[in-house]
Amino acid sequence: MYVRDLIHIFLAFLRVGLLGYGGGPSSIPLVHREVVEKYRWMDDDEFSDVLALGNTLPGPITTKMAGYIGYRVKGITGCVVGVLAMALPTVFLMIGLLGLLLSYKDSPRVHGMTAAVRPVVGVMLGVLAYGFFKKAWKDSGMFSTISIAAVSLLLIGLGVHPAVVMGVILIVAVIKGLFERDSGQKGERT
């Protein structure tokens, strides 16, 4: 079981690392697919928490997710396996293909490849975003979902850094939660 879990962590993040075209955020739907849909290590709620906190803390998002999820499933070993599975293969590729790729980097074919994959990533991200809105709508209602979404969109549009917006929302939520506890908890259940 132990080794099998580690192999699963390895395979999951190997796939994420090799398929994630277009930088960190493009890997998020792939991580979601492996972690929530395929291996069911966490549910959507926990995934959303991990993503939110990952966005609030500095540093690259994909490695934070790989490392944390690996850790959550199989401790420190899982953490190391997750990060290495995601990072090493492409480092190998870079070292191995340096000469070859440098002569092709301006080729329209290579450019066409990275361009054509973008709408695919866009679709994956869009589907995931829709899922989050749907879930929020179902759990917290229309008003809360729309107002939080509108406020954060506005702030980000005004140039406030997303990490700051995320941090502020987290703090407001905690304060609101503390007040709810003081007023004897509303009969809300999840």
Binding site: S48, A52, L125, Y130, A149, P162, M166, A173
Partner: peptide
């Protein structure tokens, strides 16, 4: 926190 942050994650995505 988990609940309120979800729409923000949605907006970011």
């Amino acid at each position: 926190m988990s609940r309120m942050v979800r729409p923000v994650v949605g907006v970011l995505l």
